[in-house]
Computed example of a mutant assay.
Amino acid sequence: MDVFELLGISEDLAGLTYFIGTLIMALPVPIQGLKKWGPKLITDGIYSSILVNLYETFLSLLVQIGNVLGTNWNNFFNWVYQLLANELTVYTVIRSYYAALTSVPYSSINPMVGPISMLLSIVSGFMSVTGTLIVISELIYNYVGLIIVIGILLMSMPFRIGRSFGGSMIGFGMVFYIGLPLLPSFLSDFNANILQSISVQSNYSFSVIVTQIIPIYIEGTVLMPLAYLGMLASLSLGVGYAISGMSSRLPIPLDFL
């Protein structure tokens, strides 16, 4: 099922929502809790239909805003894969130290084995964070249209069942598609861009790794990126709330007069 088939389903759901609203308005039943849903569903149906027809406008708007802000996905992917390569290089160097220490007799009582093993775990954590960032980036870059369409589909469901979550998905797709490639620039502004702070060398001394490399990686691959992603998440929630208008709820309980 492609994007335009989902848009067709969304349009059908929008029409269904509209006609359910008109049906409720026409019911000769004096139930205020039910009657109040008539105008809401009619409005929701019209609004969802507008969102369906604005789908390509959303995509065009993302590109235009991204161009204004300097969004460049190719540069971002080059940066993040280079970052992962640097982390792998550091891991390989530390692993060589560990292999050298454990190859000698009585290595289990060597006091350096424990700290180096801990460093391996830390750098593995860095690579896991970067790998997760790559997965999220690939998902957003390749499927931003699908994410927005699913959001529209959820918002088109009658009685606002998926309205809040649908708006959040639209906001997530839009904000992260524009903002995520700007992460390297954000890190550079705070002097936390690892690719600008250190250069990959064929060998590192243990003291350099402990006193320079690890602190830089903690700041540049964990703390600052997580702070930036948190800001994007907060902004996407705000955009999603603005698009959805309100939280989702079911038309129950009914207030009988």
Rank of each mutant, 00 (worst) to 15 (best):
V123Y: 02
D44Y: 06
S108P: 03
P115E: 00
P111Y: 00
Y47E: 13
P115R: 04
Q32D: 14
I65A: 07
I136A: 09
N72V: 03
M127G: 09
S48V: 05
I134A: 06
W37C: 02
P39R: 00
M112A: 08
T92H: 12
F126A: 01
S48I: 06
W79S: 00
N67D: 05
Y106N: 02
G45T: 03
N74W: 10
T89E: 11
T132D: 10
Y141E: 03
Y97E: 08
V129E: 13
D44W: 13
G38C: 02
P39V: 04
V93Y: 15
Y55K: 04
K35A: 14
P105T: 01
L120W: 09
I31V: 06
Y141D: 04
F76D: 01
W79T: 01
M118A: 14
S103V: 08
L51F: 10
L83M: 05
Y97K: 12
F76V: 02
G125V: 01
T89V: 12
T43K: 12
L84P: 07
S124T: 04
K35F: 08
N74H: 05
S107N: 04
Y97M: 08
L34C: 09
S107Q: 01
I65R: 04
D44V: 00
E56K: 15
V104T: 11
D44I: 03
V52I: 12
N75Y: 05
N110Y: 04
S103K: 14
T71Q: 03
T71Y: 04
N67K: 00
Y97S: 07
V29M: 15
G33S: 05
N78C: 00
V135Q: 14
F126C: 04
Y141M: 05
V68S: 04
V104N: 15
V80R: 11
I140M: 02
L34P: 06
Y55N: 07
V113H: 11
L62A: 09
V129T: 14
I65H: 05
A26G: 11
L84G: 10
L120V: 03
V80G: 02
I134L: 06
Q32S: 12
D44P: 04
N53W: 14
V52F: 12
A99T: 13
I46A: 06
L27W: 14
E138F: 12
T102M: 09
M127V: 12
L34D: 07
F58A: 05
A85H: 15
V123M: 03
V93Q: 14
L101W: 11
L133M: 06
I136L: 14
E87K: 10
I140N: 03
L88Q: 10
L119I: 15
K35C: 09
L34G: 07
Y106G: 02
G66I: 04
G66T: 02
V29H: 08
L84H: 15
L101T: 06
G45C: 03
E138Y: 13
L61F: 13
L51R: 11
V80Q: 07
L54H: 15
Q32P: 07
